[in-house]
Simulated scan of single mutants.
Amino acid sequence: MKLSVIILAYTTTEGLFEMTMNCINSLIESEKQTEMEIIVVESNKNYNNSEFVYPDFVKVIVPEEDFNFHKFLNIGVRESKGEFVALCNNDLIFYDNWFARIFEISQSNPQIKSFSPSGRINDFSFEKEYELGYKVRTHVLGWCLVTYKQVISKIGYLDETFNFSYADNDYAMTLKKFNIKHALVNSSKVEHLEREKVKKNRIGLSEGYKKLQKSVKINHNKLPKYVFNKGNEYLLEDDQGLSDYLKYYKKWGSPNWLYRKNKIADLCIRYNLGFLNKVIL
């Protein structure tokens, strides 16, 4: 059994390089018994001419294409050799045996094919070692996803329509559509160094990659009615965020319609009819 860890990085400052190295070092220390390969997909096109050099055991890929979250992960997946792949941000700290815990769950529950570690580092009060579900930021944590590589092949790789925002939402919906079970593994601990914990030039993946996104202009006179629903006022202040929102609901259906479809899909899963979700969703 081999684990391929794909890390997206944007190495333009000493702080960002240090952050990614801390991620890599904690990864190596956390899983000394696991055969691993580490692949860094680098968004700084000038990386090879820069002062920054990752260790020889790290495979660094610098795509010629412009940054796209799902595309860059797909590039890493295609280069990977492991039975399992971990899709990771670079602002992570891995704790002892984080993958071993996931592997144990995968072996005792072969029907579960996709996993997220818990970001609740100091919380050991959980009643269940794992929780099944597709709720984003509860079960599906987009900053660290672990899956069998065969799952990525089955779903046709990650949808490159989603260049950053709503990528985790799309992954969760795709799993549900293909009736692939996902679990949050409470005993697996990986810390996500979110924005408030990262200072000055040590900005996280989110802030760095927002700078790489092309500006988007949207005609607000031709927006679907659901955009103007109560609570969506913030969407009209950011065309990039609005564009990502529209991509998601264009693919999966308007919010009301998607809510209804999800209710039916959840019932199918409950009664072991999840195979019907490929038609429903």
Rank of each mutant, 00 (worst) to 15 (best):
V198A: 13
I155T: 11
D168A: 14
M36E: 01
G119F: 14
N256C: 07
A9M: 02
N44D: 13
S215I: 12
F94I: 03
D238S: 09
E14K: 13
N186D: 10
P255R: 02
G76P: 04
E51N: 14
K149F: 10
S118L: 05
K211F: 08
V53Q: 13
N169E: 12
F94E: 02
Y130S: 12
P255T: 07
E127I: 13
L258H: 02
F17N: 05
S43Y: 00
S125T: 15
V85E: 00
I6Y: 06
V58Y: 01
V151R: 04
E129Y: 11
N74I: 03
P55M: 03
H139W: 05
I269K: 07
K250C: 04
T138S: 12
T13F: 04
W252H: 02
N89V: 00
F126C: 05
T161A: 12
K113M: 14
V77W: 00
A172N: 07
K214C: 08
F275N: 08
V60D: 03
L276V: 08
N46L: 11
K135C: 13
R202L: 14
K2S: 12
F178I: 07
H182R: 09
E127N: 15
G142R: 04
Y148H: 13
S188Q: 09
L16A: 13
L158E: 06
L205D: 06
S206M: 13
I112W: 08
F84M: 06
N272W: 06
N277A: 04
V41E: 00
S116I: 07
G241W: 09
L92E: 01
E194C: 13
L3P: 03
Y249N: 02
G133S: 07
K176C: 11
I61A: 04
L3K: 00
L281K: 02
F103L: 15
F275D: 07
E14Y: 12
S50W: 09
L273C: 12
L258T: 01
I280L: 13
N68Q: 03
F115C: 10
I280H: 02
K81I: 03
N46M: 08
E83S: 09
K176R: 14
N186R: 10
T13I: 05
I93C: 09
F17P: 00
N219D: 15
N109I: 08
N256M: 10
K225W: 08
A9Y: 00
Y245H: 14
T147D: 09
S206R: 11
S80M: 03
M173H: 06
R101S: 15
E207H: 10
F69M: 08
I7P: 01
Y259N: 15
R137Y: 11
L246W: 03
L193Q: 14
S206A: 13
P63E: 04
A183D: 07
Y95G: 02
H139N: 14
F67E: 03
L73S: 00
Q240L: 15
I28H: 04
L193G: 05
G76Y: 01
A265H: 00
C88R: 00
R202K: 15
A100M: 10
V53E: 12
F84T: 01
L145V: 15
K278S: 12
W143L: 05
R270S: 11
K135E: 15
I280G: 05
I93L: 15
E18S: 14
T11H: 05
S4E: 01
G231T: 01
I180D: 08
